[in-house]
């Protein structure tokens, strides 16, 4: 079934209204991805991002950049990629998003100490879903 431009517009409106960041539709021979521009939404409806914590908090979030199911540990490993209190480098893997047969890594945007792993294994995550909260080291510069 081909997707028409009108369908895309309608989907975009639904995303906008429902506060969903992104949607990905996959069918044989067809894939569609829509991402809502965050800043636009913030301007339109100033809902505070609760997951980001209090405004005074300087912690940074490792976020999913693709939709799928979150895995805190590799299925072949007992230990999760990171645990609270652990020191990690920028770019360290904090978890995986399983999409079909693939695992997309979620990486730490900055070096620091893991405060909490927010997402739960098996949970459905989407583009921008917070996965882990990291207290950055004072001297570190976020890579993004």
């Amino acid at each position: 079934m081909p997707i028409e431009m009108t369908d895309v517009e309608r989907l975009a409106q639904i995303l906008e209204r429902s506060g969903v960041d992104a949607i990905e539709i996959e069918e044989p021979g067809l894939s569609l991805k829509l991402v809502v521009e965050k800043s636009a939404r913030m301007a339109a409806s100033p809902t505070p991002a609760a997951a980001a914590g209090p405004a005074t908090d300087h912690s940074v979030l490792a976020k999913a950049n693709v939709a799928g199911h979150f895995l805190a540990a590799h299925p072949w490993r007992d230990k999760p990629f990171v645990a609270p209190g652990q020191r990690i480098e920028a770019g360290a893997i904090v978890g995986l998003v399983k999409i079909g047969l693939l695992y997309a890594p979620i990486v730490a945007p900055a070096a620091g100490t893991v405060d909490a792993v927010i997402a739960e294994t098996g949970a459905t995550v989407g583009y921008g879903t917070p996965i882990a909260r990291i207290r950055p080291l004072a001297e570190s510069n976020p890579i993004n």
Partner: peptide, 17 residues
């Protein structure tokens, strides 16, 4: 086949960004 399709999809999502 499924793996090839999955890889193509993920690469496309990443290039879109």
């Amino acid at each position: 086949d499924r793996l090839r399709t999955n890889v193509r999809l993920v690469e496309e999502i990443r290039t879109c960004r």
